[in-house]
C-alpha cells in the first residue's frame, strides 16, 4: 500500500452506470476527485470531505479503500453493502458504481431559477 501511495501512478478504470461515463482514477485519489479532474458531472460534488453525503454511491463491483464518512450519511449497514461517499472511495481495482446522491436533484425546481 505504502508504495502505491508514494508512486501514485497506479490507475484504475471507474465506470458510472446510467451515465455512460468511464475514467481512469489514480489509486491515491478519491473517485470524486478523479471525476472532477476529467470535468465530468455524473456524481454531485458537495463538501468533498465525507460530511454532507451528496456524492453517495453504491459500488457494484471492484475493490476500494475507504476514508472516514459521516454516519449521518452512510449507515454501518449501508457501508457493509458497498454504499459509500465518492469523496472517500479510493479505487484499488477497476470499479463499477451507481450514483445514489443524498437527494438527487429534487430540490432544484423549488429552489433555483437555474432549474427552470
Amino acid at each position: 500500500m505504502g508504495e502505491m501511495y508514494v508512486s501514485g501512478s497506479a490507475k484504475h478504470d471507474v465506470r458510472i452506470v446510467d451515465f455512460d461515463l468511464q475514467f481512469a482514477c489514480p489509486a491515491n485519489q478519491s473517485l470524486l476527485r478523479g471525476m472532477e479532474r476529467v470535468a465530468a458531472r455524473a456524481i454531485p460534488v458537495g463538501c468533498r470531505n465525507g460530511g454532507c453525503g451528496v456524492c453517495k454511491i453504491e459500488v457494484l463491483s471492484g475493490s476500494y479503500e475507504k476514508g472516514r464518512m459521516s454516519r449521518a450519511c452512510v449507515s454501518a449497514e449501508e457501508e457493509e453493502n458497498g454504499v459509500a461517499l465518492a469523496c472517500k472511495v479510493f479505487p484499488q481495482g477497476d470499479l463499477t458504481v451507481r450514483v445514489l446522491g443524498k437527494m438527487g436533484r429534487k430540490l432544484a425546481p423549488a429552489h433555483t431559477p437555474a432549474a427552470r
Partner: peptide
C-alpha cells in the same frame, strides 16, 4: 425575486447551483 435568486446569492455569476443549497451537514 425568484427570477433573480442567482444574482441575490452570487452577484457576478448571476446563477446558483442547486447543490449550493443541498450541500449541508
Amino acid at each position: 425575486t425568484f427570477e433573480e435568486m442567482g444574482s441575490a446569492v452570487f452577484f457576478h455569476e448571476r446563477n446558483v447551483d442547486p447543490l449550493f443549497f443541498e450541500t449541508t451537514t
